[in-house]
Nucleic acid binder design. Structure first.
Length: 437
DNA sequence: TCTGGGGTCCTAGGACCC
DNA sequence: TCTGGGGTCCTAGGACCC
């Protein structure tokens, strides 16, 4: 009791916190190179549409009908049979580029059409999420066996708590980082970069310092030398908007940010964000690792090949809308969740986005119920432009087998009958479009 | 050459209740 | 009759991340 009050754990001595950030190198592209080793060293970008089953094999069968072409022979497909980026016309973006492609200035989130200008000879492969998820599970299992306290940050990134792992303190964490790197490469053939630091913020920046296949050890006293010269944008949490605003004030590096008075930052960036900017620039970050978490929302959205008109393309829009609802419903059911906030998202041809949502009295994962509620949301939108993107979202999720989901409060259900909010429509519905979708 | 899809979190205003 | 403050829920938009 006394020990707890003093913040001293009875199980572990008070070792200095050592947090690792592990980032798989060019993950999607590297997974593709495992099955197409003949592309190693070439500029390859991943993006565009989904994988069409055995597209390449079909072309090989046509080109060389005299021999067998199956999934076993992927590595034998000649390089010149692979699709080049310059033949692509569409709205896709690059998700990953090999280091050979990055040398041409091609990078993540870049439009495929722009990448084609920078590197027209690059090979373009479609994304294959199933394959990436498979390798994601494998590399995470390797880590988990060595160091069990892991925060999942998506398909190719994790934080690992080294503090109490045997060997986790040796050489600031380098020994353990080496062991993990070797285990992952032995098991998967993939490489990763690892940064080890006193907290998540610094670990994330450290993992970027020595890529690919590198290890970077950061101590608190290294801040001025290794972090302050970096661009503000390198801080996880400073995006394009905040960066532009900082630059407008003449702040380009983390060191320049650290030199500003916290009061000045609060005046210009708000109480919360301003205080955080100050702390981050000084390498301060107390956030714990989030070992397990529950989803808050699930959504499906799609960008059309061409912008659609709410009247002219009514049938197509209706079909897409129904399909999105069915997909979200299937996702919810497969993962065992129900939600009660149903929402839609639209993006117009000028890239402006609008969202509408509505909270039901009961939790659902039913495609028809979702479609109905989302349809009502759609009626609250004014359509003045062509539509580029349509999405459906279900939020306020709970597990399908939990009490709330199983036993809807009778009081709630009753109150909705008399609820004034329910009785009158939210804002003015656009009646002339009420039956469009 | 226009800019994917799946998420989380924050802010801010209004309704509503105590 | 007027005023008010706190708390929670809902909705819309936006920044940011992988």
């Amino acid at each position: 009791m006394l020990g707890y009050a003093l913040g001293v754990s009875s199980e572990t001595p008070n070792l200095p916190r050592r947090i690792a950030h592990l980032d798989m190198d060019a993950f999607y592209a590297s997974v593709e190179l495992l099955r197409y080793p003949q592309l190693k060293g070439l500029p390859v970008v991943i993006g565009g549409g989904r994988r069409r089953e055995d597209d390449l094999l079909a072309r090989m069968r046509a080109a060389q009908p005299d021999r067998e072409w199956t999934i076993e022979h992927l590595a034998e497909i000649p390089v010149d049979m692979f699709p080049r980026i310059n033949g692509y016309t569409g709205r896709g973006v690059i998700t990953t580029a090999t280091y050979a492609a990055r040398a041409f200035g091609v990078g993540s989130a870049m439009g495929v059409m722009k990448a084609a200008q920078l590197c027209p000879q690059a090979i373009l492969l479609p994304v294959d999420f199933e394959q990436y998820r498979h390798y994601s599970r494998r590399f995470k299992e390797m880590v988990y066996d060595i160091a069990p306290l892991v925060e999942d940050r998506g398909v190719d990134e994790i934080y690992i708590d080294f503090t109490d792992v045997p060997g986790g303190q040796r050489q600031g964490g380098r020994a353990l980082a080496r062991l993990i790197q070797k285990s992952i490469t032995d098991a998967t053939g993939l490489t990763c970069s690892i940064g080890v630091a006193p907290n998540k913020l610094l670990a994330k920046m450290a993992s970027e310092l020595n890529k690919p296949n590198g290890i970077s050890i950061l101590q608190a006293e290294d801040l001025a030398e290794k972090i302050w010269p970096l661009a503000c944008r390198k801080i996880n949490g400073i995006g394009p908007k905040a960066d532009a605003k900082l630059q407008a004030h003449g702040i380009h590096t983390i060191g320049e940010l650290a030199a500003r008075e916290p009061q000045w930052l609060i005046e210009h960036f708000g109480k919360s964000y301003g205080a955080w900017l100050h702390a981050a620039s000084h390498g301060i970050d107390d956030r714990p690792l989030v070992i397990e978490s529950e989803p808050v929302s699930m959504s499906r959205e799609t960008t059309f090949e061409k912008d659609l008109h709410v009247l002219h393309d009514k049938a197509a829009l209706g079909d897409i809308f129904t399909r999105l609802c069915q997909q979200v419903a299937a996702d919810l059911q497969r993962k065992g969740y129900v939600g009660k906030t149903i929402g839609i998202k639209l993006r117009f041809d000028n890239f402006q986005s609008v969202t509408r949502d509505s909270t039901l009295d009961v939790y659902t994962a039913d495609a028809k119920a979702i479609r109905h509620a989302a349809g009502l949301c759609l009626k609250r939108v004014e359509f003045k432009r062509r539509i580029r993107l349509l999405g459906v979202r279900v939020g306020s999720l709970v597990r399908a087998d939990c009490d709330q989901a199983l036993h809807p409060s009778p009081l709630k259900a009753l109150s909705s009958v008399f609820s004034a909010r329910e009785a009158q429509p939210l804002k003015e519905p656009h009646h002339e479009q009420a039956d469009l979708f």
